[in-house]
Design a protein around this nucleic acid. Structure first.
Ligand SMILES: [Mn+2]
Ligand SMILES: [Mn+2]
Ligand SMILES: [Mn+2]
Ligand SMILES: [Mn+2]
Lengths: 227, 227
DNA sequence: ATATAAAATTAAGTTACCCTAATTTTAGTC
DNA sequence: GACTAAAATTAGGGTAACTTAATTTTATAT
């Protein structure tokens, strides 16, 4: 028997590689291991399988990069994931911070006909509830103008676009403090020595302290007249 | 590491055992093997795992039966399956004969919160598009009054309730000929030697020949005044 | 009661995916 | 340029779920 074309595990690796490539390319084995919560040898082994299927290229001791086919496949998973997220939030009214995990299971169990009917039902949404773009049916993913909140200087204002690197702990943390796509933020202070940013959400009284790590995962666009 | 509480494979075995139990109990290993499209040794091995988890009881050389826990678990899978089927037909407008396969994948990837929100969205439907009852959130499944079409005599009329033992080939075959829950059927003739039944769907000109095997999987209720 | 066919089970082996421990390679420091 | 810590890789092993081939048990038919 020839090995299966794909599997839930393979799809998750492809998706992770795709997401990590936006930060560094090629992607380090250790990064993938951390993201997938598995050991490095497990990653090495899987990377060999993926390379055999020509979904990634592996440069030993350097890292992994998606091939064109691999990237298409990854974008397709992302499409399913983000469409399900929209459905779960918009139609089923499930909480913004929980839908990521639900979608992460559904994404692997979705037939093409279901994906496309879902897209039609939702009227072909462009972004997931966390602000990340939804690839089109052909696998095209527009990369948008955005910069990490951590790149702002004191006094600058910006609009929250998206939460990169989605994970429930992070989404939970942000939602509790009112950080959603669309809100307007002002950096009131930046502590030295990689300390936290004091960020005010428009309409709130008190600013909120965000660590650099998190501020690097929250993406914004500068409000016009300030860029 | 203790073995996972459940898996897609385990859920499918439980569901199959549950469905087969309505025909014969305990369920024969060979029946399960056929239903799951795997070899008998594979079934034996899995049955041992299920027995270890106390989800089934296995009487060697006799067969398998669900425990109370096992049946609850099976009903829960059936609930998810049938709710997804309703969603796919009612909300996404996918074809009646295709949704079974789509739902068979989604059913294993559905968090409890998703299941219940889905049920609410659909206004707590009682039956799947193929007429089979949807267990409630507690796992209760009402067994309804119905008899196989094969049990009717010549001249008798009945209403199609459900298609048991769902499989795409069967659903495809029936949908092409107009057999859906709710239609009124009349048995016009029954061929001897296990030959086919000539069945007329109300409103049609020509009767349709259905083999005994299929007529045994189509369930009806007698129209009042004929039982 | 015995022969035989069918069903169930055991035996032995495979693949995907994971692990820990040991080793090798790379990159940064003096 | 050698020394060392971190990262990558190899070696060896495990489990879930499957396979085919061989064996045992049950059911049936004479
Ligand atoms: Mn996933
Ligand atoms: Mn998202
Ligand atoms: Mn299934
Ligand atoms: Mn159904």
């Amino acid at each position: 028997m020839s090995p299966a074309l794909t599997s839930e595990t393979i799809e998750m690796y492809l998706k992770s590689i795709c997401e990590l490539e936006t930060i560094e390319s090629p992607v380090a084995i250790s990064q993938l291991a951390q993201r997938q919560s598995v050991s490095s040898p497990a990653v090495i082994e899987m990377v060999k399988r993926l390379a055999a299927k020509e979904l990634v290229t592996h440069t030993p001791y350097k890292g992994v990069a998606l091939t064109v086919t691999g990237k298409k496949r990854a974008h397709n998973v992302l499409r399913r994931h983000r469409l399900w997220e929209r459905f779960l939030v918009d139609v089923l009214n499930l909480p913004w911070e929980n839908v990521h995990d639900c979608a992460c299971r559904l994404e692997h169990a979705t037939a093409p006909a279901v994906t496309e009917s879902l897209a039609a039902l939702l009227q072909h949404p462009v972004r997931c509830p966390h602000g990340n773009p939804i690839p089109d049916a052909d696998g095209n993913l527009p990369d948008d103008e955005k910069l990490p909140l951590a790149a702002l200087e004191i006094g600058q204002s910006a609009t929250l676009v998206s939460v990169g690197y989605e994970e429930t702990i992070l989404l939970d943390y942000l939602s509790r403090r009112g950080f959603f796509p669309g809100v307007t933020l002002t950096v009131e202070d930046i502590a030295p020595y990689q300390g936290p940013l004091m960020v005010l959400i428009e309409g709130r009284e008190q600013p909120c302290a965000l660590g650099r790590e998190i501020a690097g995962r929250v993406f914004v666009t500068m409000d016009s007249g300030e860029g």
